[in-house]
């Protein structure tokens, strides 16, 4: 049958795992060339994955019920990984430091690995049920997942900040960026994620209003996205108003991502509601 979307997406899973490993090597042994290689591998992974996503889109049309590959758990995991890598690469390009990669690419690699290997995740292309037949699907999923990806990177930066501690000297720990820099990046990334999450919630509300006649129905997914929004809102105010910096914000960034994680997975697997199609 030749190359299918699964082939390409399978490849990208291994490429991202390789990239995460290279970033780790780069950090631990402080090898500049390995770092450059890691970036190259990540870019390659992104290209292969992009091709895979596009091919999946094309394949769905060949099957007679074409739709953007953003309609079930498998496709959302793939898209989450794609966004995370993209957000990370932009960050790397802007700050000209590769160490963050060791903390960001694992999220993408894990997401792809889970999507590819978990028996709970079906990777077949399926037609859209009536509730999902809307252009708002694309806007809603894209905005939400850019937000989630930014929060994943912010969580990676939070972990990095905690790992960094206040060690000095020239161990592997101190080869991480300065704490002030990590703190500022984390803040910027949270702001970026917050705007996308807000847009994601709003596009979801517009869509719900069109499909069901209520823009907000306190469905568990909606409620958890609001909880997540509040967690990051409190984080931003803790910084602006109370002047919290560094460690406390790093912890909040990790808590925030746990909330994102629950909104994404926990709700699907543990609670029932209108978003149930996201669990298959």
């Amino acid at each position: 049958m030749g190359i299918t979307n699964s082939t390409l997406l399978g490849f990208s899973t291994f490429i991202y795992l390789g990239a995460a490993f290279l970033y780790l090597l780069h950090w631990v042994f402080r090898l500049k060339k390995v770092g450059v290689l890691a970036t190259g591998v990540t870019v390659l992974g992104l290209l292969v994955q992009t091709a895979g996503i596009l091919l999946r889109w094309v394949e769905s049309y060949k099957m007679g019920y074409g739709h953007a590959p953003l309609s079930n758990l498998y496709e959302s995991l793939v898209f989450f990984a794609w966004c995370t890598v993209l957000v990370y690469l932009v960050l790397e390009w802007r700050i000209k430091t590769r160490v963050v990669g060791a903390f960001a690419t694992p999220f993408a690699a894990m997401s792809m690995a889970y999507a590819s290997f978990s028996p709970r995740v079906r990777d077949s292309i399926e037609p859209l049920i009536p509730a999902l037949q809307s252009n708002w699907l694309i806007a809603h999923v894209i905005t939400c997942f850019i937000g989630y990806a930014a929060f994943a990177v912010a969580c990676g930066l939070g972990i990095m900040y905690l790992v960094r501690g206040d060690s000095k000297g020239d161990g592997i720990i101190s080869s991480l960026p300065e704490r002030r820099v990590i703190d500022s990046l984390m803040h910027q990334t949270i702001i970026f994620g917050m705007i996308w999450l807000s847009t994601g919630i709003i596009t979801g509300a517009v869509w719900a209003n069109q499909a069901w006649g209520t823009y907000w129905s306190w469905d568990p997914k909606e409620t958890w996205s609001l909880i997540t929004w509040i967690v990051y809102g409190v984080t931003l105010h803790a910084r602006f108003v109370q002047g919290w910096r560094g460690k406390k914000i790093a912890v909040l960034s990790i808590i925030g991502f746990l909330s994102v994680f629950f909104t994404y997975f926990g709700v699907n697997f543990l609670l029932s509601g209108l978003h149930s199609y996201g669990s298959q």
Binding site: T223, L226, I227, I230, V231, V234, H237
Partner: peptide, 17 residues
């Protein structure tokens, strides 16, 4: 404001469980 936000977030969990 922060207290109310945290209270809202925490109690919102109830209705999802």
């Amino acid at each position: 404001a922060v207290f109310l936000l945290i209270a809202l977030a925490a109690t919102s969990v109830i209705g999802t469980v």
